[in-house]
């Protein structure tokens, strides 16, 4: 099994490490490849879009001519995991809490709406325990994170919590073979989401 990690910008090396750990836990033989151009898209069984700055990753995807191609192969069924910036790039609707409407290149493949910088600035960034429906509790780091505020169609939430200022928000959503998380499992060392991704490839 070859799992690709988009490596244009962001914490892709943390994802490489955690994906290797997840492959070991699942006892699946396979490897992790860094994806920086169109050619490497052809030989992968799943793609991880890391945390980082969604505006930057989006623009670099556009400049390298990968934005549409990656979007269409994910829509065509390539299992995909997007964390934080990755979730923003996969969402069909994106807004920013301070700047409102934003014009940034996105793939727009998942039926979710995200609110960028929903929890505030870096000083309000936080760690907390989350209940993931059917899987148990994991430790999650929200770093200048977005919130998943809208889900429609086949998208469903796997984890949610009540925020004192913005109310009930989803932290984790799935739709078909796509997973979007508002938080960073790779920063707290949790392999659960990567294991779910591996299971999706096996199916």
């Amino acid at each position: 099994m070859r799992i690709g990690v988009l490596a244009l910008q962001g914490d892709y090396m943390d994802h490489v490490e955690i994906t290797r750990k997840a492959l070991q836990t699942k006892k699946v033989s396979g490897g992790v490849v860094l994806v920086k151009d169109k050619d490497s898209l052809k030989s992968i069984d799943a793609i991880i879009i890391p945390g980082g700055e969604s505006t930057v990753i989006g623009r670099l995807l556009e400049r390298t001519g990968m934005l549409e191609e990656l979007g269409s192969i994910i829509a065509g069924g390539l299992p995909a995991l997007g964390t934080c910036a990755g979730a923003i790039l996969m969402a069909k609707k994106v807004r920013d809490k301070v700047a409102g409407e934003v014009k940034q290149p996105i793939m727009g493949v998942m039926s979710i709406g995200v609110l960028r910088n929903a929890f505030g600035r870096q000083r309000e960034s936080f760690e907390m325990e989350l209940e993931v429906g059917g899987y148990g509790r994991i430790r999650a780091a929200f770093i200048r994170a977005p919130a998943i505020v809208e889900l429609w169609g086949d998208a469903r939430e796997l984890s949610w919590f009540e925020h004192p200022e913005i109310g009930r928000v989803a932290a984790l959503a799935v739709e078909g073979s796509m997973i979007a998380s508002a938080f960073h499992p790779e920063i707290t060392g949790e392999t659960l989401l990567h294991e779910i991704l591996i299971d999706m490839v096996k199916r």
Binding site: D11, G52, E124, S125, E127, I143, F161, P164
Partner: peptide, 25 residues
């Protein structure tokens, strides 16, 4: 200390994590 609306703010992982998101930029 500035207010922290939810969870634990400003932990080492959250503080070292931000620069980690800037990698390659």
């Amino acid at each position: 200390q500035p207010p922290c609306p939810i969870g634990s703010c400003g932990t080492v992982k959250v503080k070292v994590g931000l620069p980690s998101m800037l990698v390659g930029g």
